[in-house]
Nucleic acid binder design. Structure first.
Lengths: 158, 158
DNA sequence: CGTTTTCCCATGTTATCCCATGATGTCCCG
DNA sequence: CGGGACATCATGGGATAACATGGGAAAACG
């Protein structure tokens, strides 16, 4: 099962187009969609994106909440209301909506970060800062890596 | 169950290509992947690599965390975002990304070290130095290796 | 109509394929 | 036991394809 992996920084042209990294494109395509689903993160200034599979599971997660609860409404308005289905053109590019770009503070370059089932789109420098912090915290969170099915011996991340 | 074993030093050509040792190649292939997954170690200046089995176990571990939790986000950024899927070409070579090479200080030669479920890629001289130290430490750590048939099952994975 | 989006083509760069070479290792047969 | 004959492997280089990127023209939209 393919997943989004790796980090790529691409340019945004005058028309607002940006190449979705070829590898991401093939993941989305393998899930049966000639595009990706994107929405603003509610945790920071970046964009969350995924193929149809994860997008569907988000819907399922929402359905587990009380349909009229304020929590569900809030989450749904961001995860669904603010989301966009971005189909890639014949050259594999997508058009990032102004709103999403503004949310992430993206001007003329965008960094795509693969995270497994989903990926994120960042303003390059902002990601650089986030990553530095993540690298540090990762050590602290390392304990999570040792859980149940345990990673093979020499443990990947300590 | 095959595992990565042995040490090999190969040259990197002008295009950045390097032969994955044939034995490593067959391990990856036996796990169903015509390539390997590599990422910068956050413990030192070398590259970590593995076949799909180990890589998938990392993905599964991440899937046990809530999809939007900061923990998952940070771990995935480091473990997946910084990793690269390197498929070998028809001659069994991989193309080491500039970033990984820089992290390991690799110029025109790379040393592959098998470690069982995963392997590492080092700048030859750097590995030489590490190995000398490892040999010494191994003496002290030797006690940690308990016989599998020893009485108390030493509880879980560490 | 004017604006935005989509399609199509051009270009430079990078990655991939394909073939050649030499070195090493393996196997078989005398 | 020795000596090829042959496979495997690492390595180099030229040719080809894939990719990111820019721009013009057609099409859709309001």
């Amino acid at each position: 099962m393919e997943s989004f992996r790796g980090r790529f920084t691409n340019k945004i042209d005058a028309k607002g187009r940006v190449s979705l990294p070829a590898k991401f494109r093939s993941v989305a395509t393998s899930q049966g969609m000639s595009g990706v689903v994107c929405f603003p993160s509610f945790q920071g200034s970046f964009i969350e994106g995924s193929g149809p599979r994860f997008a569907d599971s988000v819907l399922q997660m929402l359905d587990r909440l009380d349909p009229f609860s304020p929590e569900r409404n809030m989450l749904a308005s961001v995860l669904i209301g603010d989301s966009a289905e971005l189909m890639f053109d014949s050259d594999g590019r997508i058009l990032l909506p102004e709103e999403l770009r503004a949310h992430a503070g993206i001007a003329d370059e965008a960094t795509f970060v693969g995270l497994g089932e989903k990926f994120q789109i960042w303003e390059p420098k902002a990601y650089e800062a986030f990553r530095a912090e993540a690298l540090e915290k990762a050590r602290a969170y390392g304990d999570l890596l040792k859980s149940p099915t345990a990673l093979p011996p020499a443990g990947g991340a300590r």
